[in-house]
Design a protein around this nucleic acid. Structure first.
Length: 206
DNA sequence: GAGAAGATCTCCT
DNA sequence: GGAGATCTTCTCA
């Protein structure tokens, strides 16, 4: 467990350009601690959302009670409820006062898969976390975790991977938005079966 | 206070 | 592939 905590992503990781953070989050690990249990998933798909310059972002109209975390300290969780059914998990980026967040859209289950199945019974392993609403359900993430500091040990945080191997990724337009569709701010790991949807994109190598 | 929209998922055809 | 579920948030009067 100590090794897990020592590799938690620090505040400085998030206090950068949102697009850069989004790309570098691929291959990192989400850790959810529930009592004595630990759920871990590898990030395979993300989307970047910014502020006034991004019409698809909740923060495009400025700060509201809901979007306040996007303008706050980087490295915090921004969890919101949508379509009357689903929660979505974001991590805040940029410096204080500048809106930015990265939506975590899909994970590859690594540890605690049996517990994820408890929260999402009757689905295959691939279906557990291959979508923003699915992964929050499998990881038991809801608004009670909104604004939680993800740079400290707690119920939810992100950590580095064990290897520093380059990740081969692609980019595409973001999914489910009606504005800002000219921006290729969705990033996903090439060929990963846990990516939520396959869209035409361009390949990048880091 | 009312109405509309929404970063989704699942079931049914 | 299409439509319904379901409720929070925001805008406008």
């Amino acid at each position: 467990m100590e090794l897990v905590y020592s590799s938690i992503l620090p505040r400085n990781f998030y206090r950068r350009d949102t697009i850069t953070v989004a790309k570098e989050l691929l291959g990192k690990f989400v850790v959810r601690v529930i009592g004595q249990d630990q759920l871990i998933g590898r990030i395979v798909e993300v989307e970047a959302y910014r502020g006034f310059d991004d019409p698809a972002s909740h923060a495009s109209h400025g700060m509201t009670p809901r979007t306040a975390p996007m303008f706050g300290e980087p490295g915090h969780a921004y969890v919101y409820f949508t379509y009357g059914n689903h929660h979505c998990l974001n991590v805040t980026t940029e410096r204080i006062g500048v809106a930015g967040a990265v939506l975590i859209r899909a994970l590859e289950p690594v540890e605690g898969i049996n517990i994820m199945h408890r929260f999402r019974p009757h689905v295959s392993c691939v279906e557990l976390t291959n979508g923003p609403g699915k992964l929050t359900k499998a990881f038991h993430i809801d608004k009670s975790l909104n604004e939680i500091d993800m740079t400290k040990r707690g119920p939810l945080f992100l950590k580095r991977g064990d290897s520093s191997e380059p990740v081969e990724m692609s980019r595409s337009v973001r999914i489910g938005i009606s504005a800002g569709t000219d921006r290729l701010w969705r990033f996903f790991i090439n060929g990963n079966q846990y990516v939520s949807r396959v869209l035409e994109g361009s390949r990048i190598r880091t």
